[in-house]
Amino acid sequence: MKAPVSTAVAIGVGGVILLGYFLPVPYLTNLRLLLLQWAVFLAAAALFVAALNLSQHHWVRLTNRHEAGTSGLLLIALWGSFVLGLVYPLHSAAVRGLFRFLILPIGVALLGVLTVSLIYAALQMMRRRPGLFSVLFLTTAMLILLGATALPGIGPIPFLSDTLRPWLAQVPAAAGARGILLGVALGTVATGLRILLGSDRPYGE
């Protein structure tokens, strides 16, 4: 077993959290809450570590002179924003400007690209994966889209907007999603138990 001490700690903490969820014993519940608080702070620290990891990658590229310009710009943007956020409050003009004129447009632009990608994928779907399921998939997508809009001069499409679309979304789609989520829940339970048993530690120490 890799790292027996940390594995034992992980198993112990996991066991307490699990039992604290199911058994309403006050001592156990309080202990669970305390452990969760620690975990919350740990998660906040992990966000900072992620920023460091990102920086490290671009620093290596910068020093290796491999697309150094892009990486340098990204590093300046990352840590510049960090310092800006520390120095100026959230509602200051500098932070608002950064957010409105840089972060928001980039995010929205990427969503626009995603829209084009998805429509393009839908156009190609019948070629890449011809078959009954693709026909069903495309037909359902088109009906849901049409049902969510109003036609010029007509308004909401009768029957489709008020009956078929809600039925498609709430019965077959929701039922399928629930089925998938049940499977995912079973998989999550299995993964959780493997972690609790200390058998699922692909990482090192």
């Binding site: 049940l182 499977g183 079973l186 999550t188 299995a190 048993l197 058998s199």
Partner: peptide, 28 residues
């Protein structure tokens, strides 16, 4: 769905990864 959770078992993770597929089937 849960095929994502079965990936490691199918890639040869063996042991509890493989037996958890049985448990998932039983509970399903």
């Amino acid at each position: 769905g849960e095929e994502a959770f079965a990936a490691a078992a199918y890639l040869g993770a063996g042991g509890l990864h493989a037996t958890s597929l049985i448990a998932e089937d039983v509970f399903r």
